[in-house]
Measured scan of single mutants.
Amino acid sequence: MALNTPQITPTKKITVRAIGEELPRGDYQRCPQCDMLFSLPEINSHQSAYCPRCQAKIRDGRDWSLTRLAAMAFTMLLLMPFAWGEPLLHIWLLGIRIDANVMQGIWQMTKQGDAITGSMVFFCVIGAPLILVTSIAYLWFGNRLGMNLRPVLLMLERLKEWVMLDIYLVGIGVASIKVQDYAHIQAGVGLFSFVALVILTTVTLSHLNVEELWERFYPQRPATRRDEKLRVCLGCHFTGYPDQRGRCPRCHIPLRLRRRHSLQKCWAALLASIVLLLPANLLPISIIYLNGGRQEDTILSGIMSLASSNIAVAGIVFIASILVPFTKVIVMFTLLLSIHFKCQQGLRTRILLLRMVTWIGRWSMLDLFVISLTMSLINRDQILAFTMGPAAFYFGAAVILTILAVEWLDSRLLWDAHESGNARFDD
C-alpha cells in the first residue's frame, strides 16, 4: 500500500549564491595573561575582544583620537594649579581661619623630617597626573615632529594605576569627618577644581587605549598563520617573532617567553612588605597634641575612634588600611606557593584573586592621604596640633611594595603550573 505524501511548494523562490571570495581570516594573537594562541577576527570600533580561555580583555573598544586626548590633557593642565594650590577646605580653629590644600599637606610631611613619605604622596597625587598630561601632550606634538614615541607609550600603561586623584578625593571626605570634632569646616574653591580634575582624569584614563596608539604610530604586520613560536610582548602586546637582537619589532624591548626574574622580584617585594606591615600596624601612625597632652593612634585605634562619629567612614578606612593590605599579602603568598608547588586545582579562583588584588591594591594609600591633609588643617603649635607617627613611612612603603609585587608577577606562570593543553579552566 503506497502512502500519498503531499508536496510542499515554497511560496518564495530560494536563491543560492556561491561564495565568490575567501572568507576573511583572523590574525593570530597570544593572550598576555595566559599565553593562549588564538585567531582574533577583525574588530570594529566600539567592540571589545576577550581571550577565549581566561576571559582577559585583549582589545578595548573604547578609543579616543589623539586630538581629543590632547584637549583633555590641556584642560587638566589648566585645572591643576587651582586643584593643588587653592584651598580645598576652610576650618575655623580657636577663632582663626585655616586653609588646607594639597601642596601644603605634602610640605608639612616633608617639613617634619619625613621627606620619603611626603614624596610618596607627591608622586601619586601630583607627579603621576602631571606625567600623564605631559605624556599625552608629548605624543600629540611628537607625532607631528617625527619624534620617538616608544618610551612614552611604554610608560603610559604602567602609569595608570599610580594616578590616585580619586583616592585622594575620598581622603578629603575622611579628613573632614575627623577634623569636624575640633573645628567648623567649609569647602574651599580649590575643592571644585579638584573634583573637576578627578572627573576629567577618570574619563581620560578610561578612554586612553595605549594598544590602539601603538597600532597608529607603529603598525606591524600581524601573524596570519598559526605558529607556536609566536611570542607576545608584555610592553606593547604585539604578537610576532623577535628581531635579530631578540627584541620586539614594535617597542624594541627584549621579547622573552616569560617575564625575567618574575618570581624572585615578586618574592622579594612580598617578604619586604610583610616585614614592614608589622611596625606599620604596631607603631603610632598619627599623633595629636591637645592642650599640651599627647595622644597617639595606631591604624586600628584611629579607626575605632573614627567609628564613634561615623561608622560608615570608619568601615571604608578599615577596608583600605587593614583589610586590603593583608588580603593582598595572603593572596600573593598563596599564588606564589601554588606556582612553586605546581598546583593544578582552583586555577579559576587564583586568576580571579590576582585580578582582584590588581584592582584594589592602590586604595591602601588612602590613610597616607588623610594624614597629609589633616596635617595641613590642624597645626596650632602646642594648643592643638596633628602630626604623623613613625608607622606612616612603614605603611606607605608596604603598600608600594605590594603594588610592585602584583605588577611583577607574570600571570602566565600560573598556567605553566597548571596542566598543559587546557582550553578551559575551572575549579
Rank of each mutant, 00 (worst) to 15 (best):
A56Y: 11
H340A: 09
D243F: 04
W64P: 14
T202Q: 14
G315K: 04
Y218T: 05
G146I: 01
M388V: 07
N310W: 04
I303A: 10
L283I: 09
A115F: 02
C343M: 14
P284N: 01
R226S: 15
L353V: 14
E228L: 10
A187T: 14
W408S: 05
M120W: 04
L366T: 14
R216D: 07
I199C: 14
Y289I: 04
A397D: 04
R62A: 09
I167W: 05
L89Y: 09
V406Q: 10
N44W: 08
R231H: 03
K160T: 07
N281Q: 12
K12G: 13
L78F: 04
I98Y: 05
P10C: 09
Q186P: 02
L276M: 10
V174L: 15
R260F: 08
N209R: 14
S411T: 10
I199A: 14
M388I: 06
C236H: 00
M1H: 00
W363G: 09
R221N: 08
D27H: 12
K160P: 08
D227T: 09
T239L: 06
L149T: 10
D114T: 03
G235Y: 03
G118Y: 01
F386I: 07
S411G: 08
R226D: 11
Q33C: 12
F192M: 10
F386G: 00
L205R: 15
R97G: 06
P279Y: 02
I98F: 03
L79C: 03
G389Y: 00
F217A: 13
N310I: 06
L205C: 12
P6F: 12
S286Y: 02
L257E: 04
W408T: 07
S372Q: 04
P24N: 11
H237P: 02
L153R: 00
L169H: 03
E22L: 09
A18P: 11
L169G: 03
A280M: 07
I330D: 01
T224N: 07
L263P: 03
I330R: 01
E296V: 05
L69E: 06
G235H: 04
M36D: 11
M147Q: 03
L69H: 13
I131S: 06
I303R: 00
R355M: 15
E211W: 06
C236R: 02
W140E: 03
L156D: 15
S301T: 07
M164V: 03
S338G: 12
K265T: 02
S364Y: 00
M1F: 00
G61A: 12
V174Y: 00
Y218I: 10
Q55I: 12
A312H: 14
S372T: 11
L156F: 14
I311T: 12
D114H: 11
E212T: 14
S193H: 01
T349W: 13
M164K: 02
Y241Q: 09
L276W: 11
V313L: 15
C54T: 00
L213H: 10
V317H: 00
V189A: 08
D227P: 12
T110W: 01
K13N: 10
L165T: 12
I378A: 01
K160M: 08
Q264N: 01
C343P: 14
T374G: 02
H90Y: 05
A56T: 12
M36G: 07
E42Q: 10
R30K: 12
I285G: 01
I378F: 02
I400G: 06
V203K: 06
S308W: 11
W267P: 10
T9L: 11
S193D: 04
S273M: 03
G361K: 01
K57S: 08
A391P: 01
Y182G: 06
G293R: 13
L282R: 04
A307F: 11
L130E: 02
R362V: 14
R245E: 05
M80E: 07
G127V: 03
T110E: 15
L384M: 07
L283M: 06
L93W: 02
